[in-house]
């Protein structure tokens, strides 16, 4: 398959993830849309490094997986702490910093 087809699929996935982050209000669903965006970037990295006959892109994918695992622990801990304080994880209810 040519490289452009993989990049088109990755672009469509990234755009779906952006739409999820902007449109949804549940904190867990926003986090899952972030995971879709991570996965789109991973697909792009692997496709490009397969096309250029390099391995460096695959190493980047491993580091992105490490960051995603750390982010999962932190984000879900934050959502549990917020739920304990507010009783909801609707992101519009966290507006203490609003002027």
């Amino acid at each position: 398959m040519p490289l452009n087809d993989y990049l088109i699929v990755a672009g469509v996935l990234f755009t779906i993830g952006v739409a999820g982050v902007l449109l949804r209000r549940n904190l867990i669903v926003v986090y899952m849309s972030l995971e879709i965006m991570f996965n789109a970037v991973n697909l792009g990295f692997v496709a490009v490094s397969n096309y250029l006959n390099l391995v460096d892109g695959v190493i980047f994918v491993i580091f992105i997986m490490v960051v995603a695992a750390a982010e999962a622990a932190i984000a879900l801990g934050i959502s549990i702490a917020l739920f304990r304080v507010k009783g909801t994880i609707d992101i519009d209810s966290f507006d203490e910093l609003k002027l």
């Binding site: 398959m1 993989y6 867990i28 986090y31 899952m32 995971e35 996965n39 991973n42 692997v46 496709a47 397969n50 695959v58 994918v61 491993i62 997986m65 995603a68 695992a69 999962a72 622990a73 879900l76 959502s79 549990i80 739920f83 994880i89």
Partner: peptide, 30 residues
């Protein structure tokens, strides 16, 4: 199909195994 079987195994182990178990557990908790 991009000839990276190691990354495919890591994807299933780390994402579908570890991270999604955490997410489903938090959904159950809240």
């Amino acid at each position: 199909i991009l000839d990276m079987q190691f990354i495919a195994a890591m994807q299933i182990l780390v994402y579908a195994g570890a991270i999604m178990v955490l997410v489903v557990l938090v959904i159950m908790l809240l």
